[in-house]
Design a protein around this nucleic acid. Structure first.
Lengths: 259, 259
DNA sequence: AAACTAATGTTAAAATAATAACATTTTAGG
DNA sequence: CCTAAAATGTTATTATTTTAACATTAGTTT
């Protein structure tokens, strides 16, 4: 025998699937019971982790929706320089106009670019990471090229010799390149040697090369060298960077955008 | 000139992307403004249909959320033969043991295979579609190879000459191949010509070739021919298939698994 | 810099939601 | 059919959120 309550629990979940979140009163009205009954039901569902409750509403937990991004993102709201990265990403996206082509390098900053791209534009986008791919695949009007290869779980990057060959066949108006270290004396570096060939090829295939990096990356050196700062046409960062870099950009006619 | 308010509006949307829904107070605290400022901002966003407001919180409308996982799946619970496909997918996944290698073809049935793979196993997986990739990327112990290339939005498939080359470098114990038509006289067919090269190469690179297809695909022909039924070592389907195929499998020592 | 305007902040009152205690109804067992 | 227990409903209280009116601050113009 199935109890009335069990039936209601399922009905509540069904309702939530269709309109998430819902209020206690709405559920009470729909199921024709008092708000306290709904509260008691919801309490059970919450203990079983089947719903999440907050003041004013009930909703399905992330895991029961498509929303469990955490698996596919490097962009963590609690991470350092998160706000700066978001601003940098937005600034980069705003450089583009309809019908532009771009190459998106790896990293969390470039993920914010992907999130900020205008869905109304018909862009041509090349990218290399699962997090970027998931974001750009939503852009219905844009053409997506994903060179692919072997998966590196920590960076969510795919890379291969053949992927490089696909990249070499393509050209882009813009390349948005990330870095984990930028130094005036030792150049621009990243953390993983497998990134090097891709990054170098990105630079060779694009017209306007834009370095995107928050200020924590400056005067920092990582293991793998892939470019000099003067190889870039523009730099988007936040205003925490040392003055020496401002001067260097001025002297080398690198467009400096601080957000 | 971009106003402070416009900046905040974007920030609010960014925050919502990462934690949906959010309360007015949370936003006020994060953005370091008063709750009234947030309210006035949210009012604007609501008028522009960019957020939805309810007593106790603000959230992104469905279309702007990660919740629309429909973007990344071919497996629609309301589609025909859905239950059969799920059972076929599970049966296929159960053929595997730890440390096995496999190639996952395109389609909704193979998506169910991806969903059914054992996360405890250390598998080596090659796949070609975004929907499969999103599922297998969760398998933390498995190695993922994604040949990549040009994106076809309707099938979520990526394909390219270079992708084929990556595939040729790899071998797998199992290939799970899908089809949109199976006929004794006209062979095994799919709907898109761009799938052909990939499918043929999958067959060449794998030891045990398993055709996965629900019974609605039998005695059906589609535009692109890529294999004969006897090229397969096993067939997983439901028991709605015509007897002629049962006989054919027996005569050609194709292992027939019905679920 | 003064005056004006727009934006933001403060506060208190009103509306809504959550909680708790108790009343009523329903259900199951004898 | 009666009783006890469980489930549900009612009501009052408390907590939270929303609204609205007004005060303050920041930005612009002259």
């Amino acid at each position: 025998m199935i109890s009335k309550q069990e039936e209601r629990l399922e009905k509540i979940l069904s309702i939530l699937k269709l309109s998430n979140p819902a209020t206690v009163n709405k559920l009470a009205q729909l199921l024709d019971v008092s708000h306290m009954t709904i509260r008691r039901d919801v309490e059970i569902l919450e203990k079983e982790k089947r719903v999440e409750v907050f003041h004013g509403g009930i909703m399905l937990p992330d895991s029961h929706r498509g929303e469990n991004w955490k698996e596919y993102t490097l962009a963590d709201a609690t991470s350092i320089m998160c706000e700066e990265k978001k601003r940098i990403g937005l600034k980069a996206a705003l450089m583009l106009k309809d019908n532009d082509s771009l190459i998106l390098d790896t990293g969390s900053t470039t993920e914010y670019i992907a999130q900020s791209l205008n869905p109304q534009y018909s862009l041509s986008i090349v990218c290399f990471t699962l997090n970027a791919l998931i974001n750009v695949s939503k852009l219905k009007k844009s053409k997506i090229i994903f060179p692919g290869g072997y998966f590196h779980r920590n960076t969510l990057m795919f890379e291969s010799e053949e992927g490089i060959n696909i990249l070499k066949k393509n050209r882009a108006a813009f390349a948005f390149v990330s870095a984990s270290g930028i130094s005036l004396s030792l150049g621009v570096t990243c953390s993983n040697s497998y990134e090097r060939e891709t990054k170098k090829t990105i630079m060779e295939s694009s017209m306007k090369k834009v370095l995107v990096a928050d200020s924590s990356k400056f005067d920092v050196v990582h293991s793998t060298y892939f470019a000099e700062l003067q190889d870039f046409d523009a730099l988007i960062t936040d205003d925490g960077i040392p003055d020496s870099y401002r001067l260097f950009c001025k002297n080398n006619s690198i467009e400096l955008l601080t957000v």
